[in-house]
Amino acid sequence: MRKLFDIFIYSWVWISTLAVFSTVICLLWFLLSRGLPTFGKELFFGQASVWEAITGQVRVWDALWPACVGTLSLVFLAALMAVPLGISSGIYLACFAENPFKRILSLSVELLAGTPSIIMGLFGFALILFLRNTFFPDANTSLLLAASCLALLILPYLIFTTQAALESLTDEYRLIGPSLGLSQLQTIFHIFLPASGRGILGGVILSLGRAAEDTAVIMLTGVIANAGLPHGLFGKFEALPFRIFYLAAEYQTPAELNSAYGTALVLLCLTGLLYGGALALHKTLEWQWNQH
């Protein structure tokens, strides 16, 4: 009886893993088979010449390049705002906050985490309406606004993973710093944070991916289909997920639909690239921790 049960559990665990794995493979295969054939200069730059497109001399129509740049700038800006803020808040929650204040703070972060992204978008949109009616009649949805709303969206992931990584350090480990005469700040920055690097990195990666793929927020805060390259912080912009949405909703030829798959593939690669970047940063920091 017992044995039968064990076998059941084993096979269940196996089957579950296999199911997840094969779903991922199917998805990738599907994307690759539909998207890969569309890859080429045409998909990225349309009729424009590559060099002129990259340097921004000519406008690129019906191609991915402006959306790639848009998404990269969005993620970069959002990360620039959210990562320092999120990690610092995580440190505060894990190392300084005391109940009941800590509980209230955690609850509000949880609330933020539970907020659907469309609400974040609405919030940004409402902010612009408010600004227009009050101080800045010229205020408009823009790259900066979209990035700020995305930053708000990913903030809770960063806070929670930082807090969790710091709180999972063992009691013995926590005592090393103080027992050697390090101050509290030295202990946090030189002993705790480096050791939690892996967990924090996980949060950063998760949030970068989240910022790159979100469509609801940017739809209300400044993305448009044919903006071209982003025109500074206060201009409109294009973005990959929005382009996928737009192509899939309004395609007129099968080729256009296929280019949506191509775009999805590009988004996937871009996210992979961001992961790679975060990983490299982590490796550098870890290496530095080991330097005299």
Binding site: E172, Y173, L175, I176, I191, P194, A195, W289, N290, Q291, H292
Partner: peptide
Amino acid sequence: NVLPVSIAQ
């Protein structure tokens, strides 16, 4: 409870 760094560090 060594730190997860090199011996020297």
